[in-house]
């Protein structure tokens, strides 16, 4: 392989990595609300994404149809999953999760983490197998002209090398960045966002401020669920959905949130980005099957040198 061809491949992998990384970033931001900020272990996050993928798929193919909205169909369908998943997440929290979080979690062993783990693992199994029974095993994806068209970006050093940018993936990446940035502002700047952080930081003191800690947890959980659904809806425009697709992504989400630093929304996004880049760039030097191994090698290395994560901050007095 000559140098020019390698540069072309590297540029292609880098572009793919950035685009995949943006979507992983959004997925990680969703989990950051639940795990990073509220410190609730949620094993079902990947399956919320799966639900969002199926929902967007059926909305796009059976309800909306492609005639009226054209290429925008999958993204409109993805947006429509947000209110649905928000309500699902809020409802699940009220009925089940709330028994293990907030002030009630304080009284449980390991602050409720063990109970959360088992509970959300149960929800994950119900969602996975429910989808299997109701929807079957065959994978689906929303195919539009965008999924199969690409922009060609010529590389300037010769006349024939170029980087191809898949349009569906590019739009997915841009949408992901936009939503992630909006959520970052929500947490960093708004009263609601600050109250979520306060409720997670010290539920007892938050109660003394008059903050309804249960409600704060419910909102964070609902936002996290809705973001997983939205990301799923965006992804299904180029990645096929099947009942166990969440398993492929849940590990990436946790790795991204921990990598970025617990509690940081921007950190979670960049954690997802790093994973996307490592995954795609590793294909240059390693067989494709080892890309997940590469992710964990990078994960271990980064945590070895920065245990608090890339963006983790030490907020306690030394």
């Amino acid at each position: 392989m000559n140098a020019a061809a390698f540069v072309e491949q590297a540029a292609q992998a880098l572009t793919a990595g950035i685009m995949v990384g943006c979507v992983y970033g959004l997925l990680c931001v969703g989990l950051a609300f639940i795990f990073g900020i509220m410190r609730v272990i949620n094993f079902a996050q990947g399956d919320f994404m799966m639900v969002g993928m199926y929902l967007a798929f059926y909305l796009a193919t059976h309800v909306l149809g492609t005639t009226l909205l054209g290429d925008a169909t999958p993204f409109v369908a993805a947006a429509l999953t947000v209110p649905v998943l928000f309500i699902v997440g809020g409802g699940l929290h009220r009925l089940l999760i709330a028994r293990t979080t907030g002030l009630r979690g304080v009284g449980l062993s390991a602050e409720g983490h063990q109970a959360q783990l088992i509970l959300t693992l149960g929800i994950a199994l119900v969602l996975q197998n429910g989808a299997l029974i109701l929807l079957g095993t065959s994978p689906h994806t929303v195919l539009t002209t965008l999924s199969s068209s690409a922009w060609e970006l010529p590389l300037l050093y010769d006349d024939f090398s170029a980087v191809f940018i898949n349009q569906a993936r590019a739009i997915a990446a841009v949408l992901s960045v936009g939503v992630a940035f909006g959520l970052f502002l929500l947490v960093a700047r708004t009263r609601l966002g600050k109250s979520l952080r306060a409720a997670a930081d010290n539920p007892e003191a938050a109660t003394y401020m008059g903050i309804d800690v249960d409600r704060a947890h419910r909102i964070a959980f609902a936002i996290g669920t809705a973001v997983a659904g939205l990301a799923g809806g965006i992804i299904v425009a180029y990645y096929p959905v099947q009942p166990f697709v969440g398993v492929d992504f849940i590990i990436i989400m946790y790795a991204g949130v921990v990598l970025g630093g617990m509690g940081s929304i921007s950190g979670a996004f960049w954690g997802g980005m790093v994973i996307g880049l490592v995954q795609q760039l590793s294909t240059l030097v390693m067989p494709l099957q080892l890309q997940n191994a590469a992710i964990f090698a990078a994960f271990v290395l980064i945590l070895l040198f920065r245990p608090q994560g890339l963006f983790g901050r030490n907020v306690e007095r030394a």
Partner: peptide, 23 residues
């Protein structure tokens, strides 16, 4: 004002005061 202060450690000083003004 609880025993042991219980400030919101990961929030800034100003954000802590803002949370006090929740009502």
């Amino acid at each position: 004002v609880p025993e042991g202060r219980r400030v919101f450690a990961s929030l800034s000083v100003l954000e802590n005061l803002e949370m006090g003004a929740w009502p």
